[in-house]
């Protein structure tokens, strides 16, 4: 009987003493879940609210019923927006701007990063720092001088850049190129020097080293930089607001705000729908390239 009690006692006590690590781990997990849930609620509430509102008619939005519930769901807002030529023009403009900006950015920054990280030349280190400093200048400081600049260009050459969607193709790279170049410099720096020396001895030119060795090896970094460039050029608000005014030249973020807010009349249903539609492309891209993006952020995994 005595032995039985000792076994009884040691039975439950053993996993506790043995499992102090796992209890600690469980507590840590609980806390992380707690904060993750808070985080998720904080960040997902606005999109959920947008989704709910986008499914309501104006009458229902104006009605003082529970704003978190759709009583009479309708796709009216989607139908209206997707058949309005104005809205489709915004999408087209945004797409054009983003595609061109992303292409230009990636070409320029990959070439620049390769030159700055591998072809040691006079002033390359200073130049690399300079590029990063460019990124630190806020756009709020730049849009007036840029505006003035484009006006001067028009004055002297007759080329009208203001109020044209393609002016954004000239302006956005000032935001995307420095940061992407910086990311790529870091990524290229993690590629062992012997790899390009081996390529050099194998007979590769600088361009072949870049295209056949560096780009494939640094692909995760390039994808991360591409996503960044796309996000910036898709969501940029201040520059298009300052440089474009005609409704056929607007891009989505500005277009939604200017065309759907008439005076003090806010067409909430359509604004939310437009914002949701505008948010879709980055979401899709993130979803597909997430793995690469994460791999790109945890750079340096190229050893071997």
């Amino acid at each position: 009987m005595a032995t039985a009690t000792t076994i009884d006692k040691s039975g439950p006590s053993r996993p506790i003493s043995h499992g102090s690590m796992s209890q600690d781990r469980r507590r840590a997990l609980l806390w992380s879940y707690f904060f993750l849930v808070v985080f998720v609620i904080f960040f997902l509430t606005p999109p959920v609210y947008m989704l709910i509102t986008s499914l309501k008619s104006s009458t229902e939005i104006a009605g003082a019923r529970n704003p978190w519930w759709v009583f009479e769901p309708t796709l009216m807002n989607y139908q209206t927006l997707l058949t309005s030529t104005e809205f489709l023009t915004f999408i087209l403009n945004s797409s054009m701007v983003s595609i061109i900006v992303v292409s230009v950015t990636m070409i320029v920054s990959v070439l620049a990063a390769f030159a700055l990280s591998r072809m040691r030349f006079w002033g390359s280190a200073t130049l690399a720092t300079g590029i990063f400093l460019c990124y630190l200048i806020p756009e709020t400081l730049l849009f007036i001088p840029l505006f003035k600049m484009f006006a001067v260009v028009n004055e002297f050459t007759g080329i009208q850049l203001l109020n044209k969607w393609y002016v954004l193709v000239l302006v956005y790279p000032t935001l995307t190129v420095p940061f992407c170049t910086w990311i790529m410099i870091g990524y290229f720096a993690s590629i062992p020097k012997e790899l390009d020396e081996a390529a050099l001895i194998d007979g590769a030119t600088y361009m072949q080293t870049l295209t056949k060795i560096f780009i494939p090896v640094a692909l995760p970094g390039i994808i991360a930089a591409t996503i960044f460039a796309f996000t910036v050029s898709w969501a940029q608000f201040l520059y298009p607001l300052a440089f474009t005014t005609s409704s056929d030249q607007l891009v989505l973020p500005v277009g939604i705000v200017t065309s759907l807010i008439k005076g003090d009349v806010y067409n909430w249903g359509q604004i939310m729908t437009g914002a949701l539609i505008a948010a879709a492309p980055p979401l899709v891209i993130y979803a597909f390239l997430m793995d690469y993006y994460i791999a790109g952020l945890t750079a340096g995994a190229t050893k071997g």
Partner: peptide, 29 residues
């Protein structure tokens, strides 16, 4: 330039191209 010296080099950390197979590595030049 190195490529015209008709030399081949073996590095301490091997310097194999990580994204290529052994065949591609060996045939790159």
């Amino acid at each position: 330039p190195p490529k015209d010296r008709d030399i081949a080099m073996v590095f301490q950390n091997y310097a194999l191209y990580p994204h290529m197979t052994v065949f591609e590595n060996m045939s790159f030049g």
